[in-house]
Design a protein around this nucleic acid. Structure first.
Lengths: 223, 223
DNA sequence: GGCTGATTTTGCAGATCGTGCATTTTTGCA
DNA sequence: TGCAAAAATGCACGATCTGCAAAATCAGCC
């Protein structure tokens, strides 16, 4: 592996850093090999060899072979949640979420090479796209909880009407729905953007249009 | 090839019927065994034995072990599409889709035992819920296409403005988003209904509220 | 430097998954 | 009944994943 990427939040110990490096090396090896030979012709043995660790170690980092292709950045979820909490209070939940996700996606688009490579791999292997959704859904619960917190903070003296469900309990219906729909919106945006890549419309435009449609209540077009 | 696809209820040949029976036996065996012993302690060998076929035959019906748990009814997608096309023309796409899904869910709720058993299994095994999403997403493309057709039929002489993408090509942004969001809505409804099963609110109520929120553009609650 | 305890990596055995191929059984039809 | 197509089966083999215990590595300390 090459070098010295400042490793986001430079983890304190050498141990932490090395674990991060190994994990990153494994995912990168997996994605590159998949892009070259096709996702399901890549064995764990090949990935492990390319990353310079043993097969057994691979399974210390990932629960399954497919997981290596799915997770590009483990703590994107945490960043989005933080961003949501720090957002201006005058934004609606949908708007706040839109901004948080837009920022994160722009960030991801910056390492353009690995991003497009990864998109290409998922594109050619729908079965991996599904796993990717799974990872997305894992974050969904946590995201819903943060949405609930934000709403609770905003309605402090309003009638806490029916279903925010802040902090401790399971989130109410609205936060869950918002979190889930947001995830779906991201997926649809990416898919549609990939399909129409010949016309080179910026990804941000597709993304904004999707959220505009959602905010308008998915009205019937063309009437 | 004309109509008469009796494919649904009374399959034409004996062959077809027997295949359906075998497949149904396998899924039912899988779900029952999973409900009893936990999903990941059920081997294909056990499922095959319970259904009275060989292990190899199991893999003739399902691409993977997990697939036996996810697909309860193979042609629910086809029914929803048909229902969408037959819906009254004065419904918005979102409304039409809501009615189609509501009818299908009510139908599913009728075999209450297997339905709840299945929900319970997926609840205990998030990793299977993910597979379930995959099946959902497989139908998504077809659903989006039908939505596009419906819109195209409704706007015959309007400006076919930006993005319906009827019939042949890949569907436009709106149909895709609508299909995807609808699937998400179903999932969130079921999840939320399962979590709040102690308060016995009817599933239909949760479902209606979710679609009401979507139609209203996911507005900030309590303001 | 060298020692100690904790963490990580590694190899290995074994259970299960999933596939290709040839064979046998079943089904549809004349 | 006899025959061709389709499905079910057995078998072999590679790949995925899990415990378990030994070896290597790291952090802190004298």
């Amino acid at each position: 592996m090459h070098g010295m990427t400042g490793k986001d939040a430079a983890g304190g110990g050498l141990r932490e850093r090395k674990k991060r490096a190994t994990r990153a090396a494994l995912t990168e090896a997996a994605v590159r090999l998949a892009a070259e030979h096709g996702a399901d012709h890549v064995t764990v043995e090949a990935i492990s060899a390319a990353a310079g660790v043993s097969v057994r170690t691979f399974f210390n980092y990932f629960d399954s072979r497919d997981d290596a292709f799915v997770v590009v950045d483990a703590d994107v979820g945490a960043r989005v949640r933080r961003s949501l909490l720090d957002a201006p209070a005058d934004l609606t939940p949908l708007e706040a979420l839109r901004e948080a996700l837009a920022a994160e996606l722009a960030e991801a688009e910056r390492q353009h090479e690995l991003w497009t490579l990864h998109a290409e791999v998922l594109r050619a292997a729908p079965h991996l796209l599904v796993r990717s959704l799974g990872a997305q859904m894992a974050d969904e619960a946590g995201l819903a909880e943060v949405v609930a917190q934000r709403i609770a903070a905003g309605t402090r003296e309003g009638a806490a009407a029916h279903s925010s469900g802040g902090e401790g309990r399971a989130p109410g219906l609205y936060p869950r729905l918002l979190a889930a729909v947001a995830g779906t919106a991201v997926r649809v945006s990416v898919q549609h953007w990939c399909d129409r890549q010949d016309e080179d419309v910026p990804f941000a435009d597709v993304f904004r249009e999707v959220f505009a449609l959602l905010a308008a209540g998915l009205p019937a077009p063309g009437r």
